[in-house]
Design a protein around this nucleic acid. Sequence first.
DNA 1: CATGAATGAGTATTCATTCAT
DNA 2: CATGAATGAATACTCATTCAT
Lengths: 216, 216, 216, 216
Amino acid sequence: MPKILEKRDRPGVRLSAATRRKPQQSRARFSSEALQEAFVRVLLERGYERVTVREVAAVAGVGVGTFYEYVANKEALAALTIHMCVKQLAQALQVSTERHRGMPRADIATAIINDQIDLLMGESDKWLALFLLERRVSSPQAYRKHYDQYVDLWRQALASACDPVAPERLDAVARMVHAIMYGWITQSLMTLGAGLDRAFLKQEVLGAVRAYLREA
Amino acid sequence: MPKILEKRDRPGVRLSAATRRKPQQSRARFSSEALQEAFVRVLLERGYERVTVREVAAVAGVGVGTFYEYVANKEALAALTIHMCVKQLAQALQVSTERHRGMPRADIATAIINDQIDLLMGESDKWLALFLLERRVSSPQAYRKHYDQYVDLWRQALASACDPVAPERLDAVARMVHAIMYGWITQSLMTLGAGLDRAFLKQEVLGAVRAYLREA
Amino acid sequence: MPKILEKRDRPGVRLSAATRRKPQQSRARFSSEALQEAFVRVLLERGYERVTVREVAAVAGVGVGTFYEYVANKEALAALTIHMCVKQLAQALQVSTERHRGMPRADIATAIINDQIDLLMGESDKWLALFLLERRVSSPQAYRKHYDQYVDLWRQALASACDPVAPERLDAVARMVHAIMYGWITQSLMTLGAGLDRAFLKQEVLGAVRAYLREA
Amino acid sequence: MPKILEKRDRPGVRLSAATRRKPQQSRARFSSEALQEAFVRVLLERGYERVTVREVAAVAGVGVGTFYEYVANKEALAALTIHMCVKQLAQALQVSTERHRGMPRADIATAIINDQIDLLMGESDKWLALFLLERRVSSPQAYRKHYDQYVDLWRQALASACDPVAPERLDAVARMVHAIMYGWITQSLMTLGAGLDRAFLKQEVLGAVRAYLREA
DNA sequence: CATGAATGAGTATTCATTCAT
DNA sequence: CATGAATGAATACTCATTCAT
């Protein structure tokens, strides 16, 4: 593409050359993952509005065409990225749940909450960006899908306790526990920033959830 | 010199003629309000992405130029619309708060929650659309601004009870109560739709908040 | 016009309030002149592209409607402004010409050139702006009209000398003298800026014109 | 996903179909040149104000996107077009200059002037359009850049004569010779139209320049 | 499999101009 | 005679996506 006149730096290819993978470098095997990573990187740098397919591809070290070889489109990559992260988190919590099977519901909840907050706050920047992203792009349907997954997690957890919640209350209680937990974390992240204190986060939400469960 | 070029029905203005105000109809006095209303109407019909300035203006019964006479741009109208609704709601709750000054904190909380849910669910379609809109367009800064307003409301409410929360806990408790309330409502609205049962909503969240306040 | 949200400073109304005439202030009598002055002021401040009718009207201390009461449109005001300045200059030179009637052509030319350069360089900023403006807006027709006026001036001057140019050469010589003079001044103004040395300007062009006339 | 919405002939693309290149026709290699050519064509047809990116692209046989792939924007294309033409002309004159090195300054000047007028008047329509265009769009900076290039040409030419201009006068003389030449040609073109007589143009300006050089 | 040049639909925004008061 | 609120035509530009190589 022989440019004659220097165009002011074109939007969409603004990332410093240093951050782009060299073309031809080993990518191939997991281009989808590479694209997700690249997406998160660019997302953190610019915010969703400014993310361009060109730049994500460049950062991932592939051509634009290759981008579409692995991902249906930009929105799909956003959804996929969110989905994979959320799924990974849910799986980790699943393990946590199973390890505490048979214990009192308060202890199970405590464990899940501690684990979740540790997991999220360990990469708080990334998770904040993901929450923000989800707000922007996620449809209510997609939102609901993820949401139900977590509610289900709580349902299982609360049912597996030695002092299980009454079956007819299980659904509502699981929803509420998740609402408290998820609401508290996302809202705190958004209003207090990614740098907030992990201990504070835990202590407060544990207080609320334990109080609720005690009376549920 | 306004050209009278024949304009076959232009793409981008797809709203049925019936829904547009006749031009020259009484406007002028409250164009900003008219634009906000029109915005919500179009938002409900199409979703934010599909909202065009042209259509909002047409529905409001004004010209595009007039749109920009009253609103800086589309995004600003979205922000303004959210802002006005949220403000109105907060003011209504403020009144509610003041009416219950001096009563036990549980009663105050109950009143606020009941009022808020009634207010929201009375126009649940609109509020769902607004929540969705806020998710898409609101910056963390704007989010925080609204958020803090509500936290403040709770702070005042909890401080005005005959059994007030300990001052050193007031902030954290206010945040948590709002997190539970706001998380529960928005998440329920988004996952269960605008048609959900008002009584269920109230009963569950009252249970949680009261339990929390009892131990706070 | 009740604005609810502060719009970032609207384009078109950017001039500091101090520079605007108070409305209702004595204008009336010479609105057209006031508009021309205002136009030049705004032109100098912003460049033609950025001149808006709104601002010119504001600076002139009249309403937009009044602008159109006195001037057909923006372009017409530009043309009028140029026209009036050029005309005034030509008239001044006319006087100069007549004062030197009957003298040798070299002396007449010297006088005209000296006068013209003094006149232009006395307000070099304004004239540079006007040249620039003319370049941007003037049609070849309008250009030609002004041009011919000056050629005519030279024709009269050269014919009125005690050693007049041969009648069959008069036209061509007048054109050329004006071409040299006008080309030299405008090109120097544009490439060397409004701050250039008046003496240098005179000396060089006098040398060229005198040499030419000697052989014409 | 390019929507295949039926597009009745769109307003804003008014060029007769016959003049548009077939899409998919050989382009690619010289899109920038194709765009410049197309630009000149449309310029001649409509005048700068009426030139639209859409039409230039259509005439060049490329899509709008491709336009922006090769050119930053409309104004940049105008500047580029002027720049390339001026540069080409200057190069041709450079050659002419070098061929006459060592000859008397009058002969060198004569050669350059003859060549330049032949070159310009060979495509007088195009050059008139370009002069007009430059008037409209060129910044004083861009103007100066081109101007200095020509002055430099004259400086070299006058210095390479067997009867060179005194070094301390070289600059001023080069400026003046160019001013006479350039002023005469552009002003004649603009006031007398593209159809003027080449011989007349040459004869007059040669007379003036030779007279000047004789005394310089 | 990878590429990236070419594509064009789609929309926000400006500002000169009008005309009811 | 003056006003300025209302108007809407008109156009540049972006960037996701395709498909020939």
